[in-house]
Each structure stands twice: as C-alpha cells, then as structure tokens.
Design a binder for these strands. Structure first.
Lengths: 194, 194
DNA sequence: GCAAATTAATGATTTATTCAAG
DNA sequence: CTTGAATAAATCATTAATTTGC
C-alpha cells in the first residue's frame, strides 16, 4: 500500500492515510478497558470493540489488536526499565523472587548439567547472616547462561566468589573434528580482589 | 497490506480437528516454494497458495501463514545452533566480521562510556602474532553488555586478560539514595589461570 | 512566528519464544 | 520429538512534539 505516499489527513480521516490515527475518544476508551483489566482481547472482543469505537472514527479490527499488543508490551518495557535502574542503583542480587532477568533453567555454557545445581545452591551456601551484606556491598560478576534450548545466551549477575565457571567438558558434537587438536582445557577461574 | 494475524479463537469445540494436519502434497509444495525463495508471502500470495493447496485437503490462510513463519524461524534456529556449536567447539573469538552475538554499540553495565573504547580496542592491543593463539587456545570470558537502548543486556565472549570490568562510577539516578551507604567500590578483576 | 531539523511516540511488521497436540 | 498455534519481544516506519536558527 505504498502507492499513496502523500500523508493526507491526520485524525482518523478518510483518504487512506498510511496508518491509523486514533481519536482522543478512541484512545480514552481503549485505555479505560486496558486499565480495567483487558490485556489480550479475543477475536470476538476485538470485533465488539471495533464496532463500538467506529462511531468515533474510522477503525479496523487489526488496529484494536495492534493497540492492545503494543500497549501491553510497552507497559512491560517500562516496568523492566524501572527494575533495571533500581538494580543498578542499589546493586541488588537478583534472586528467584526478584530476578534481574527471567530465570530459566540455567547452566554453564559448556556443560549445563554440571553448573545448574551449583548455581541453584549458591544462596544456600552463604552464611545466612552475611547474605544481605554480600548482596549489597559487592559488585556483581556477570555469568553467561544458556536457555533450556541451548539457543539463546543470556546473563545474570552473581556475587563474586572464586568458582569454576567453565568445566570445559567436551560437548558431543557429531561433526567433523579432524581439523583442530583439542586444547588442553584449562579451567577459567574468576576471582575478586575485594 | 501484508497479512494481519488477527487471532482466531479456534472455537475449540466441535467441527474440525484441533489443529491443521498438512498432507504430504501440501508440505511438499510448501517446501518447494520455500526453497524457491518465498520466505514471507504477502496476504495475496497466502490466499493464492491456500486455494491452490486446498485441493489436497482442508487448509486455511492462517495455516499457510504460520507454516512460513515457523519454517523460516526454525531454519534460522538451526543455523544459530550450528554456529554456536562451532564457536564453542573451536573456541573462536567472535570478531566484528563473525560475531557470536550481534554487536551493537557496547559498554559496561555500570558506565558505558568508560568501557566502550577499551573493548573496541582489544584486538588492536594484542601483539598481532599472538592474536590467533590467544583466540584459539584460551577459554573466553563473558561480558555483559547493554544494547543501544540501555534496555537489553546481552553477552559477548572476550579473551581473558586481567582487566577492570566494572569501573563502578556512580550512575546519576535522580532517585532517593539515603537508604544505603555507598560501598567501598572495590574493583573486580578477572584473571585466568591458564 | 515558522518551518527545517531532531527527537520522542506509537502504529504496523517481523522475529523469537513458548505452549501444547499428536 | 516434531510442529502447528499463539504470544511476546524486537524492529521498522510514520506521525506528533520539540527544538533550533532565522
């Protein structure tokens, strides 16, 4: 639909502007419904809303669909930004209750099974008295994790103890391997000079 | 207009099976089109394909839409997995030409401006002779980055030198800060015992 | 005041991830 | 485990605010 590049009318007007421009009334009613708890309307609800709002100006079902998608997404985005700022400011330790990033089943990058229990038990290992101090007073290290599909790496910040991050067990890849000699697999340690 | 994926509530009850089950002929033809280069059909193309394939069995436009979406996504996913496996197997150093992850403008999590030039100059700092050795023989450390919006952290792996990761300059957030006394800001060093 | 130039909002698409049927 | 379906996240693109120099 690029044949009419001239941006004709604002305000939901007729001529086929390149995108929907909601009227004040439409936005107001949409926001009221959203705040009322309607986050993901069904197709039926979308159609009802569309016809109810069409008396205020041109509108299509997909406009309503997109509006709710975008509004929800941008709400979450704002929330994430706020949480992130708080975490950075206070240097909090992300827990399972308040994760900095969503905590999927986690594991080290080289061998999931080895790292996962270690990481999950971290908080337990700490003397319960010093936990809070460590959480607040120490800079945090960053660890790379892989999601459970092994496709998407993500990070979480952990208190800097000396620990073995990469067990470096060889992964069982079925590809050709004659080109490189296996490196001596040194262990990488992270230490903190606090 | 391209396809508008307005959700269909699937009614759930009665009528058809709960999800589309493509016939062999349908899959074959879809794959032929895909390999022929059609990755994201337009709404018009989807309708044409749908009617052409409907002679082999029940099919809807949204089935075709989803098929192409999923096929494309899973192709990319397979590629990513392969690349990731190669990187891990060979322990390659991700460069700007072959990044392990997309390289946006990067920076440390605490203070972007301080980290960015350091990171960008890493390769330059290395003696050009030992670059390859370091790239191949060392396990890589992981650093947390923030994307250009400051919203999404992501990781990249870097050769383990001893370096200052978190300068820990105080960020200028305008919120109240009387609750916590500022920590002594120790520097966190990462070292490698190769 | 007033447009050209920037920046911020937000509608629309595309891509990634997750869920669940078989 | 595969894969259709659905949702969420990321991205693109256009429009409204706004700044800026005149």
């Amino acid at each position: 639909m690029t044949s009419a590049p001239v941006p004709v009318t604002t305000g939901g007007g007729g001529g086929g502007g390149s995108r929907w421009c909601p009227t004040m009334d439409q936005v107001m009613l949409l926001e009221r419904m959203y705040r009322g708890g309607l986050k993901t309307p069904t197709a039926t609800q979308i159609q009802q809303i569309t016809s109810r709002l069409s008396i205020y100006g041109k509108i299509q079902g997909k406009n309503v669909f997109y509006w709710f998608q975008n509004h929800k997404a941008r709400d979450r985005q704002k929330l994430r930004k706020k949480l992130m700022a708080l975490y950075q400011q206070r240097r909090l330790y992300p827990t399972h209750d308040h994760p900095l990033l969503p905590l999927h089943p986690i594991g080290g990058i080289e061998d999931v099974s080895k790292c996962k229990p270690m990481i999950n038990n971290w908080k337990v290992d700490l003397p319960s008295d010093q936990t809070c101090k460590l959480m607040c007073d120490c800079p945090l290290m960053t660890m790379m994790m892989m999601d459970h599909n092994g496709t998407t790496p993500y990070c979480t910040r952990v208190p800097p103890k000396t620990l073995q991050l990469f067990p470096l067990t060889t992964t069982d890849l079925k590809e050709d391997d004659q080109s490189t000699t296996p490196p001596p697999n040194p262990n990488l340690l992270l230490t903190c000079n606090v």
